[in-house]
């Protein structure tokens, strides 16, 4: 066995026999301690990958191995103990009538004793900064707050891997910012792997690895930095690069040396500073 936590081996998937393939012969690995971003235009198959990863869907061809288990009807419940998932729509994953009940749901399903449940609910709500909302009803929360509760629900079952399937897509900028803060802080707290499925370019910059999907196939598997150097190719498959990467490219054309494609403003300013001080 390899030492990767998730492995896709020649996976193909379609929703029905008369339907087109959503994924075609997809193979990749996710090693321990990594934040992996999966990007691609709408319909590129990226959300399907997320659902395959914890057995919400099964591939027609190939196999998927998570935490040493080949995903099938028998193993899914064990797989789901180590994989937590946050979906796109904040409303449609909130099961409980209050915040507390919602976080409890996953714990109840796993038969966790009540005393431990109460402790874990408190801890995970604290981790996402939602402690004071413990008795709130979902319709009194904003979208961003509901997604924080969804993350708390996942944290409560202490998984090894959290998949965020476009979890910020329906949020306003403030909600999006809060979620990214939360993710960054929990990632530092625990030994946890992250897979984010997104098309937010600035979100990709944080990842250790990016898997780019195009029409059901893996188009690239690379680092954000290397990816942002490929503006033209990305545009061809309906994606783009962030503003700083574009600006850096223009500087290079003007003859200013930029040694590595910047991921954020600071990195670009630093490069300019080096250039400036050498002059």
């Amino acid at each position: 066995m390899s030492n990767s936590f998730v492995e896709f081996r020649n996976v193909s998937f379609r929703y029905g026999d008369d339907q087109p393939w959503v994924l075609k012969n997809v193979s990749f690995q996710i090693q321990s301690d990594k934040w992996v971003a999966i990007i691609g235009h709408n319909g590129s198959g990226k959300s399907t990958i997320a659902k395959l990863m914890n057995g919400l869907l099964f591939p027609q061809e190939g196999e998927i191995i998570v935490n040493g288990l080949i995903i099938n009807e028998e193993t899914i419940w064990d797989v789901r103990k180590s994989v937590g998932m946050v979906f796109q729509n904040p409303d449609n994953q909130f099961v409980g009538t209050t915040v507390k009940d919602d976080v409890a749901f996953g714990l109840e399903n796993r038969g966790i004793p009540r005393e431990i449940m109460i402790r874990r609910i408190d801890e995970s709500l604290k981790a996402v900064g939602m402690s004071e909302y413990i008795n709130h009803e979902p319709h009194r929360l904003s979208g961003g707050q509901k997604q924080r509760v969804a993350i708390a629900s996942v944290l409560a079952i202490s998984p090894n891997l959290i998949i965020l399937d476009e979890a910020t897509a329906m949020l306003d900028p403030k909600g999006r910012f809060d979620i990214l803060q939360v993710i960054n802080s929990v990632r530092n707290q625990e030994r946890l792997m992250l897979v984010t499925i997104t098309h937010d370019l600035n979100e990709i910059g944080y990842a250790d690895k990016v898997i780019v999907m195009n029409n059901g196939s893996v188009w690239a598997e690379t680092t954000p930095r290397a990816l942002f150097a490929k503006e033209k190719d990305l545009k061809q498959i309906g994606l783009d690069i962030p503003f700083v990467a574009k600006l850096a490219k223009e500087f290079i054309e003007l003859g200013i040396p930029i040694n590595k494609t910047p991921l954020n403003h600071d990195e670009l300013l630093e490069e300019l500073w080096i250039y400036h001080s050498k002059m």
Binding site: R80, F87, N92, Q93, V95, G106, S153
Partner: peptide, 15 residues
Amino acid sequence: RAEELAMAMEARGYQ
């Protein structure tokens, strides 16, 4: 909503 909720419940280990 029902479909998505069912999926979310399953993902959260409901059996």
